[in-house]
Amino acid sequence: MSLPIHLQNYLNDLSIQKPKELSLNFVASLQNNHQAQYSFNNLAVVLGETISLNTLEISKKIVTNGLGGYCFEHNKLTYDLLQTLGYSVHLKLARVLNNQDKQVARTHRITLMDFANKTYLIDTGFGAYSPNAPVLLQENIDQAIGSEIYRIIKMVNTKTSVVEYDLQIIKDNQFYTLYRFDLAHYNEADCDAGHFFSHKYPEAGFVNNLVISLKNNNQVIAIKNQYFLTRVNKEEKATLISDSPTLHSLLTHNFSLTIDKAITDHLFDRFIKGKINNEKETPYKKSAS
């Protein structure tokens, strides 16, 4: 069976062959290559652009035009490819916690995949902390993925008996909760609601921060507002973005984004200029996703 042209283009662009048989190795290669090539970013959000969740439009934006995107785009593209290839995949939504116990909406799209009588978490859209290989849905085991250590823990609400799961990563030598998900059924309409909140609600994180990242097995590069962040084999470094030309060079060279200098000036003035002298907290202690 041949793939639709937009999904075949996706594979071709990542230099991955359509698998002759389904395997975890293929999914891991897809995740790693995807995150190394297509930036996680919220540029379309902060620039007030229309963000379509139609797979053809996502493929055009991410694959053809190389503009990257955020979770509802990245994980929709990956989900549709895996489903078309014959993998047993299920759409889920998660609450982004960033190691805080707080009430938040389900604004992160992920995929659960059943394979060989086991279930795995697949995520190509969580930026700097996104796992770039399948995470086994098994409780309380450390899972080495690239240079990161992940684990999944079960959370049971004692009042309602609702079961949820936390995806955690080792950060600063201890486990840090990234997000919480459950096994309920979700559909594309649920994604539309989370997507609308994420890019239109005035107080949403992606509306008020500049976030960009690329990741492979050993290295992460990211921008979080006024800082350029790098993580190589767990060694972290933050460099202040001092002016608009520096930001433009990072966007065009490090992240391979085509962007006008006038837009870069706007981004610098809006997200960086006023914060350069006010940041007191080491930035990588915050989420870069």
Results as ranks from 00 to 15, higher is better:
residue 71 C to E: 01
residue 91 L to V: 11
residue 70 Y to H: 03
residue 114 D to H: 02
residue 83 Q to I: 13
residue 72 F to E: 01
residue 77 L to T: 05
residue 87 Y to N: 00
residue 129 Y to K: 12
residue 46 V to L: 05
residue 103 Q to E: 09
residue 72 F to W: 04
residue 78 T to D: 04
residue 92 K to A: 09
residue 103 Q to A: 08
residue 132 N to Q: 13
residue 41 N to M: 10
residue 50 T to N: 12
residue 127 G to H: 05
residue 68 G to I: 08
residue 138 Q to M: 13
residue 133 A to C: 06
residue 96 V to Y: 08
residue 130 S to F: 06
residue 70 Y to C: 04
residue 79 Y to P: 02
residue 139 E to S: 06
residue 101 D to N: 09
residue 139 E to N: 06
residue 93 L to I: 15
residue 125 G to R: 00
residue 131 P to Q: 05
residue 103 Q to R: 05
residue 95 R to Q: 05
residue 107 T to R: 09
residue 107 T to V: 15
residue 119 T to W: 12
residue 57 E to S: 11
residue 59 S to A: 10
residue 85 L to D: 06
residue 94 A to H: 07
residue 91 L to C: 11
residue 63 V to Q: 06
residue 39 S to V: 03
residue 96 V to F: 11
residue 37 Q to E: 07
residue 136 L to C: 00
residue 52 S to H: 14
residue 42 N to Q: 04
residue 47 L to I: 10
residue 72 F to V: 01
residue 66 G to H: 14
residue 77 L to E: 05
residue 76 K to H: 15
residue 38 Y to H: 09
residue 133 A to F: 09
residue 107 T to I: 15
residue 99 N to D: 11
residue 136 L to H: 00
residue 51 I to D: 03
residue 63 V to N: 04
residue 56 L to Y: 14
residue 79 Y to W: 10
residue 38 Y to G: 02
residue 59 S to I: 13
residue 69 G to R: 00
residue 36 A to Y: 10
residue 96 V to E: 03
residue 108 H to T: 07
residue 118 K to D: 15
residue 88 S to D: 08
